[in-house]
């Protein structure tokens, strides 16, 4: 049962990553691309982490994987914020670049 859950979770993660990647390539301007990217980082990695932790079936490894996810969350949120701020300062005011 945990294996099935893990596989479902990883499959969902792949969907989110794919969506994020397509968004990064297809969306028109910086802010919306960032928006697409955070989906992959947050949800995609979260689901992937859940899947891997379930597959490992070990509490310590699970906590480590969770920690990785939390760290990436913090880093990606902050760097997205910084990139967005920098682009605002550089004169980009959002939609319709």
């Amino acid at each position: 049962m945990p294996d099935v859950l893990a596989l479902v979770s990883i499959a969902l993660a792949i969907v989110f990553y794919a969506a994020g990647s397509i968004g990064l390539l297809r969306l028109p301007d910086l802010l919306s691309r960032l928006h697409a990217l955070t989906k992959a980082d947050n949800l995609g990695l979260g689901l992937l982490a859940t899947g891997v932790a379930l597959l490992a079936g070990d509490l310590v490894i699970g906590i480590k994987v969770l920690l990785v996810w939390v760290l990436v969350l913090a880093a990606s949120a902050s760097s997205s914020h910084l990139i967005a701020r920098y682009s605002m300062q550089a004169g980009n005011r959002g939609h319709g670049e």
């Binding site: 760290l71 913090a74 880093a75 902050s78 910084l82 701020r85």
Partner: peptide
Amino acid sequence: AGSLVLTGLVRWLVPI
């Protein structure tokens, strides 16, 4: 010194 978000992140990450 960078923005509050950056310094906050740094303060949080360094001990880890």
